[in-house]
């Protein structure tokens, strides 16, 4: 388990952990923020849409588009 200083990253991590486990949650966050030219510690509210989009594509293989959309919406709604 890891604790991110950035509250958005931490909340995304908390959403993902029960679904994909600790190792993959960290890996997915690392990959997705890197794709946007960010780091785990400088994620802002405006980045959530793009982050959620990337995570949704990954989750689709396992849970289908409907449920992946729900997870993405949950990420976008993080405050």
């Amino acid at each position: 388990m890891i604790t991110y200083k950035n509250s958005y990253t931490q909340k995304i991590y908390a959403i993902l952990i029960p679904l994909i486990g600790d190792y993959m949650a960290r890996g997915v966050i690392k990959n997705q923020v890197a794709k946007l030219g960010l780091t785990e510690e400088n994620v802002a509210k405006k980045d959530l849409q793009n982050l959620a989009e990337g995570i949704k594509k990954g989750l689709m293989a396992f849970i289908g588009s409907e449920k992946a959309n729900q997870v993405a919406s949950k990420i976008i709604s993080i405050t």
């Binding site: 952990i17 029960p18 679904l19 994909i20 486990g21 600790d22 190792y23 993959m24 949650a25 890996g27 989750l59 396992f62 849970i63």
Partner: peptide, 12 residues
């Protein structure tokens, strides 16, 4: 195996 105990991995 990379997913550890994540719920998503069981069916696969």
């Amino acid at each position: 195996s990379l997913f550890g105990k994540g719920a998503i991995s069981k069916p696969w």
